[in-house]
Nucleic acid binder design. Sequence first.
DNA 1: GTGAAAATAGGAACGAATACTATTCTCATT
DNA 2: AATGAGAATAGTATTCGTTCCTATTTTCAC
Lengths: 125, 125
Amino acid sequence: MRNTKQRQLVLDIVRNTDTHPTADWVYEQARKVMPNISLGTVYRLLGRLQEEGLVVQLEAGSRKSRFDGQPGPHQHIVCERCGRIADVPDVVDQAATERVQQVTGYRVSAHRVEWFGLCPECQDT
Amino acid sequence: MRNTKQRQLVLDIVRNTDTHPTADWVYEQARKVMPNISLGTVYRLLGRLQEEGLVVQLEAGSRKSRFDGQPGPHQHIVCERCGRIADVPDVVDQAATERVQQVTGYRVSAHRVEWFGLCPECQDT
DNA sequence: GTGAAAATAGGAACGAATACTATTCTCATT
DNA sequence: AATGAGAATAGTATTCGTTCCTATTTTCAC
């Protein structure tokens, strides 16, 4: 990977904020310094930086929503190879919730846990 | 809310599967029974059913990815009013991970916890 | 400096989801 | 059972985040 001005700039922007920015926010910031950087470049760089572990992409899953007709307090695990989703019991208890409220100052109303791994069938292949 | 044929059908489909389907999968299934049901109707009904608590929508968050330039093992909490994201320590430990592997048969490689609530500022207003 | 490979800018394309609107359907009331 | 008001739908257009494409520019090993 080559060390371009654009790459430096994007990495700089994303490292010097704690606002967990969106791609287009990064793009806006970048344009203040380099007015004709392209949005595609920002996306490509963010993806590349993520592969290198310098950046973490949140909500990176597929963009399609999925629906569960059996509501109730359970969580999910997604197979990283075939995409199969299974139900998982909730491992987050009241004590954990209170700890999070203490640390963040947020008033917690819900949580969601997603697990990732290989489903039994994909482990065999 | 009126009890339309389309509503019955969509609820039926989503309740009689455990595959956590996408909206367009539900749409395909629905068309087998009612060939000119519209995709917009499926989306609207799924949204409505979710509001009523009959269906849970996974990955419902905003469609925009967000990026974190300080990678490392931490999780996030999102303010439900203003969207502000803050970091949260990980409450999932090794024992929980092993429990999930036992129950599901998946080999777990990662997990993500998202918390939702009100940030300190939004609690005051 | 030179050249080949990699990266970029700009714009087109894609796809999931939503918005719009004329028409149809539901259901409380009679 | 008939009526009518308003809620829901079908079909289509549109939005918007993201990815793809390609001619041009830039980087860097030599």
